[in-house]
Design a protein around this nucleic acid. Structure first.
Lengths: 249, 249
DNA sequence: CGGAGCGTTGAGCAACGTCAAAAGACGTGG
DNA sequence: CCACGTCTTTTGACGTTGCTCAACGCTCCG
């Protein structure tokens, strides 16, 4: 992530990614409320399960996991992953209280919006409110896909599908489809997200490498055969509800 | 389900269950829009993945699954289950298109609300809009719990936890906690919801029976030891965001 | 009585987890 | 530059969970 051009330096420019669901005008109304940019180092707990929140975060750069701790010294389970341009905990606006931890996986930058200001803004703009609602519903759709993936797919397909999603959402966040993308997740993170052990993730990645699909090394995900990877992972992107159906090179 | 007193005969009375998040006044505004009550027999596909929807459904009675088909003659995976008093596909209002099928598991009654009328109503009532938003977010929270359950829990705990959720949501829907509740799911349904095979579900239920926790027979779920069941299933109800934290007998 | 659907049981097996050891990657300080 | 410690990845041997296949019983209903 650190080798990448930082995203969202100029908040007046509507970025790509999830917030692309908003029109330019809507972004112009929302952007000024996104204040108090913060930075987190990898492995930081941004907010904890049960906390009462009076603000929400837009992820500007890096990766953040929504994670459910289990037991004392056992690993936790990831129930969601957030990419740049996505709200991390917008659901805390109506819900107030979180049911999971929010943890930074890499160096991250976030912008904060207070629920009070959001409340006022949305009272005066029903359309924008509906857009934010929609964005949380895309999250929910991704949750459902994770249920399906971790319940119904074998390790090989499961990891492949996970990598396809990673690819698709990174592409959305950065606006370019690439053959080599920055990949700052450790294998234990993949394990937490897919419900496997890191040992088995290691073996599965080797298998994908030997299939000629992709390889994960040195913080990079190299996609050798995107079609093949999609096939192995039975990947269909519809559940991501991407804003533009345009083809990117 | 058929042995039960039918719910929601008189729409002017605010029912319990999920819609309990609404105030009396809010229910009074919403109820008149819930028209065209429909009935479905078990196993009916109410709406199909990819469909463009111009209305949403409130489940009045019975059980409905949101299900992702996989392969031709393979079983499908349930990504969610809806109980009486819950909206089945309210997310289709902002999202328009579904990413899964909607299937009736029992005899069901639903009420329909058109997206156009809902649109108008919500334009004039920001608070109500936020409540409906909240209700879809509770769904999302349950999705996350399902991700955790089906990724991180072993069969015994997984099935136990599923039954705990069933108990809790039935209790919310009917307003009474009981030792014996109507249970119209087949073991293959539990399998589809938990990501196990029906064979293994059968064995797991036997184990729960032998533990003295609960037994599933003849369309009834008998809870012999609710505390024990909660313990085996590591169940904590917070993720359900129940409207009232009141204790019910 | 016969069939269909569902639940139960058993035997064998594949997928994945566990434990442990070792090798590689990376930064730090000498 | 090397030595060191820490973190991550890889590999092997072995154990266990849960799946597959197949048979049988049960219940309900025509």
């Amino acid at each position: 992530m650190t080798t990448e051009q930082p995203l969202y330096h100029d908040m007046t420019v509507k970025p790509s990614g999830m917030v692309d669901h908003l029109s330019d005008a809507q972004w112009a109304k929302l952007a000024p409320l996104l204040v108090q940019h913060k930075h987190y180092a990898p492995g930081n707990v941004v907010s904890r399960r049960g906390d009462l929140l009076n603000h929400s975060l837009l992820l500007l750069d890096g990766l953040i996991a929504r994670s459910v701790p289990r037991g004392q010294r056992a690993r936790s389970t990831f129930v969601a992953l957030q990419f740049p341009g996505e709200f991390v905990d917008l659901h805390a606006f109506p819900l107030k209280r979180l049911d999971h931890d929010v943890v930074s996986l890499t160096d991250t930058r976030v912008a904060t919006v207070s629920h009070d200001t959001l409340h006022e803004l949305l009272n005066g703009d029903v359309e924008l409110a509906r857009k934010l609602w929609l964005m949380t519903l895309v999250d929910a759709s991704i949750h459902r896909h994770w249920v399906m993936r971790n319940s119904a797919m074998r390790a090989l397909a499961r990891v492949a599908n996970f990598l396809c999603e990673f690819d698709a959402r990174m592409t959305a966040a950065y606006g370019v489809e690439r053959q080599s993308l920055p990949f700052s997740l450790r294998q234990t993170d993949i394990a937490d997200a897919t419900g496997l052990t890191s040992v088995h993730v290691s073996r599965t990645l080797r298998e994908l490498r030997e299939h000629g699909c992709c390889s994960v090394t040195g913080g990079k995900l190299l996609i050798h055969d995107r079609n093949g990877l999609h096939k192995v992972g039975m990947f269909e992107a519809a559940y991501l509800y991407m804003p533009e159906p345009e083809a990117v090179i």
